[in-house]
């Protein structure tokens, strides 16, 4: 029956799957390898937790009413820069690994008829979800850590500013995750299917 259907010598163009489908598959990709996804997400989480704790402890210092000396302000800025660097390296590394270890799978996907932009879309959604939830949990942990260790001064704590910092952390974590996953995903999607399948990691 298969051969009968294909009597016409015509080639059509592969349909581009809607965003909803890509989202469904990306979500499924995360849930079927939940352990691996947690580790990848943890990379983001730790980086952002560190960053958030630095922000929060700066706020806490202000809550204690201590006017920071120039040396202390410099130290705080240094800590923020360091934690940004830690987040960047941690997130980039875990995202890069999570894509490159799936080159073979990407090759198989392409063999089965996946379009390049679908593969990119899929990794974008996956890394976006991992980045978002990783940095959400990370920023909560970072904040909680500082709050719990300084319970006596919570009264004067600037919550509005803390929430603002949290939002910034989440946005940063998500952007870094997606940004780190994007280049290897594009590279893999553009590879010839055979080359991608032959890749050993």
């Amino acid at each position: 029956m298969a051969a009968m259907n294909s009597g016409t010598a015509r080639v059509e163009r592969q349909i581009s799957l809607p965003f909803k489908q890509a989202f469904r598959i990306a979500l499924r990709n995360i849930t079927i390898r939940v352990g691996r996804a947690m580790i990848t997400g943890a990379g983001t989480m730790l980086g952002i937790a560190f960053l958030m704790s630095v922000f929060a402890s700066n706020l806490m210092l202000a809550a204690k009413g201590a006017e920071p000396s120039p040396a202390q302000a410099q130290k705080a800025a240094w800590l923020v820069a360091m934690s940004l660097l830690v987040s960047f390296v941690g997130i980039t590394n875990s995202m890069l690994m999570s894509v490159t270890e799936r080159y073979k799978e990407i090759g198989t996907f392409k063999c089965l008829g996946a379009l390049d932009n679908f593969i990119v879309k899929m990794f974008l959604i996956e890394s976006g979800l991992l980045g978002f939830f990783g940095s959400l949990i990370g920023s909560i942990i970072g904040l909680l850590f500082v709050i719990v260790t300084n319970l006596a001064f919570v009264g004067a704590f600037n919550w509005a500013l803390a929430v603002l910092y949290m939002l910034a952390c989440i946005v940063l974590g998500t952007i870094l995750s997606v940004g780190a996953a994007l280049p290897p995903a594009i590279r893999a999607a553009k590879m010839q299917a055979v080359d991608a399948m032959r890749t050993e990691v």
Binding site: V11, E12, R13, Q14, K110, G113, L115, D116, A193
Partner: peptide
């Protein structure tokens, strides 16, 4: 064939 047509070929044919 362009990428979209090639993908269709791999998928259907």
């Amino acid at each position: 064939l362009d990428a979209g047509e090639l993908a269709w070929l791999r998928c259907r044919k």
